[in-house]
Design a protein around this nucleic acid. Structure first.
Lengths: 152, 152
DNA sequence: CTATCCATTGAGATTGAGTCTCAATATATT
DNA sequence: AATATATTGAGACTCAATCTCAATGGATAG
């Protein structure tokens, strides 16, 4: 279980898996996909679970440190994290307007990168591809207007 | 000249190329490479050129709009922009051993990304691809563990 | 030249994400 | 029980970025 991994990680550092940390871990893994700290915090509060904003940020740092969670990117609306345990590699599209993150995976793209690496005599180990632009919803608002398709 | 392009762009919108905007444009193009608004603002001030912080941000928005400049990424320390005029798009390979950065460009890769965007109904505006691994020199020094060029 | 219109500017207020501080509290160890 | 150490949360704080609005300035019509 994820909390076991986290617990072990903490104990190795002489730290503890507290109630608050458990709650935050659960919350982070509940939303299958991406999340940002503020939303996570707000959701938690709404559901009556107690943990301060400070603890949320502190715990997310710890989760990153032990690899269960990863910072994916920064947007106008804050940092986006994603759950990493047991998930397959993929790349991201990030909507510049609403901050939505779309995951995608393309075998073809991966192969092509391998080819480019060979060509440059480079031994690729990992990569990050982020495509920034506008999601379907925001693109339609965006066409007509300038910059005001902003909502949370 | 770049300021000509900017001027034309502004005039089309019924706006003017003011002294402040000129200064900011010049400053942005002076640092060959990347920059962030706060540093640009501070540098400008230090050199005794006058333009408010608000104008810096406003002008950078305009420059992005007309394509002379592009938002490249967001970091802990703010947004990074880069001058786009006359420079070709490229992606990066970063050597984990010696830190060397190799630039590359692949038409095929770009096309493929466009296709993926269409598929996801996403309007791509820009992207960043960073491949991390080992350059030719470092790879040979490295005892090759027979790993393939895969990701995560 | 003068009045008018409207883009532009800048100082400072405001927002919002994220961090830091520190006293109070919880937990483990002896 | 006493001590030591980890943790928490409220709120202060920082910093980038945006917004507000009165003052300015350039262009143009009369």
């Amino acid at each position: 279980m994820d909390s076991e991994i986290f617990k072990r990680f903490l104990e190795e550092k002489g730290q503890r898996l507290t109630k608050e940390r458990s709650v935050i871990l659960r919350e982070a893994f509940a939303c299958e996909g991406h999340f940002d700290p503020e939303t996570l915090y707000a959701d938690m509060k709404r559901r009556g679970m107690k943990a301060s904003r400070a603890s949320v940020y502190r715990t997310l740092s710890l989760l990153c440190e032990c690899g269960l969670v990863e910072k994916v990117s920064k947007t106008e609306h804050g940092t986006i994290y994603e759950q990493r345990h047991g998930r397959q590699h993929h790349d991201h599209m990030v909507c510049l307007s609403c901050g939505k993150v779309i995951e995608f995976y393309s075998e073809h793209l991966e192969k092509l990168q391998d080819a480019i690496c060979r060509e440059k005599n480079f031994t690729g180990k990992s990569h990050t591809l982020e495509i920034r632009g506008y999601c379907g919803v925001c693109a339609s608002h965006h066409d007509s207007e300038g910059e005001n398709a902003n909502d949370r």
